[in-house]
Design a protein around this nucleic acid. Structure first.
Lengths: 246, 246
DNA sequence: ACGCGCCACCTTACAACGTAAGTATTTGTC
DNA sequence: GACAAATACTTACGTTGTAAGGTGGCGCGT
């Protein structure tokens, strides 16, 4: 069974015979190509459907070929997380050093992370739940580069060491809570691949839960964006107090 | 090794004939026993090591026997989450209706959830990342009973509908962020079972990350408890504003 | 030009997993 | 004891991650 191979690589000889130049039909499958394909696959089909064989198939390759570039599935997922986190680097709105004050710096950073979360609603929980390489690297800002940027930025804006660290911890915890819940309400989840049928959900017997039933509409409404903004402002105020109080 | 079973069997009729307890060696494996065994197993060995066969073995039973009480692994995990969440019900410090003001109510609730998270550091991320049955049931307060308690409690304390719902959302997002990071720093994770060797981690080359290296000690220090307290107070102040502003 | 090694990918194989289907064994009731 | 129901076991299949080794063509030294 030959799947629809977009980048037909398989029978090279047949192509050669047909006289076509076939200019370097062989793209030799590097690590980054695998990783971005995996991100895409997860966003499309869910984490639980991502298997080495299926990912290989997407890339027009057998499963074992992936092992030349990735030690195993677990490390693949680590790579996926890195790939996603690194997307912030190419985000023009995210700056690496404060230019218009630390408030602006944090605003851009927060919105950058949020954009990533919303761009990968299914994969984002991975960023949150995979263990960081070091215990002081907390999700979702889980690589050294970002932590360094954060601390350096804050300190250059007059924060004491202790205040910068405290701000870092408060900032990550805020981001994680908000974004995880926001993507989760988008129907994403680490666990089950199966979309829940997209059928309009039956009400479980809400008889014994009058408030929930009464407020159901309000509970369903999505104010995530506004809540994010508001909480972020509050957080920034708190961080301002940390700065002064240090 | 017989596990200490707190509740014997269904002693409805047997209670009448109290002559001989007749502890027949066969305790017929009910759903709750499976679920609590699963929680224990996850806390001990990690999520990824929990297989139907191994869980069966722990219970002295073959894997397929579990299927009489649980539809499948996925649903087992849902049951695990429920079991964990329901632990709050037997927590004496958590009350179901405000008695000394809503602030006290929220404080008790928050600390109850935190106690659960810390009691099950490995399993807790499950509570956070598994999709709720309805989109307005957000982790970690992910069952109808708690949401009803929350809303009812707040409204009985004078909150408007809108304010109660807003408080609910802010509260869950706060809890999730803090607790997930707190248990994650405890070495827990959804993903890899393998404890990372417990070896003192080598420093990855921190040369290019001077701030991180300089602040490493401060970053490693654990102030989770104090931060939780402080953030919770702040949250409660914000919720007080919601109450007035509605 | 020629062979040879290396590189990128494929093939095969295996143990462990979730679980459908069928079978055996205990338990409760008369 | 006989019989039905409840409970647990056995077997089997397809899928997974991955260890081990095979294969074919490209590039280099001569």
């Amino acid at each position: 069974m030959s799947p629809p191979d977009e980048r037909g690589t398989v029978d090279a000889d047949a192509a050669v015979v047909e006289g076509k130049a076939a200019p370097s039909a062989r793209i030799p499958l590097d690590r980054q190509r695998i990783l971005t394909a995996a991100v895409r696959f997860i966003d499309d089909n869910g984490l639980l459907d991502l298997t080495m064989r299926k990912l290989g198939a997407v890339l027009g390759v057998e499963a074992m070929s992936l092992y030349r570039y990735v030690p195993g599935r677990e490390e693949l997922l680590d790579g996926v997380v890195d790939t996603i986190v690194n997307e912030m680097y190419v985000d023009d709105d995210v700056i690496h050093k404060p230019q218009d004050g630390w408030q602006d710096f944090l605003q851009r950073l927060a919105h950058g992370v949020r954009r990533i979360a919303l761009a990968h609603p299914v994969a984002f929980p991975l960023v949150a739940s995979r263990p960081p390489e070091a215990p002081w690297l907390r999700p979702p800002l889980r690589n050294l580069h970002w932590v360094e940027s954060f601390l350096d930025g804050m300190i250059s804006e007059g924060f004491s060491d202790a205040a910068a660290v405290a701000a870092y911890r408060a900032f990550t915890s805020f981001l994680l809570g908000h974004l995880l819940l926001e993507v989760s309400s988008l129907g994403a989840s680490v666990g089950p691949l199966d979309q829940l049928g997209s059928g309009e959900n039956e009400d479980p017997d809400l008889k014994s839960y009058p408030q929930v039933r009464r407020l159901r509409k309000a509970l369903t409404e999505d104010h995530s964006a506004a809540e994010f903004e508001e909480s972020l402002e509050n957080l920034i105020e708190r961080i301002a107090l940390m700065k002064k109080g240090s």
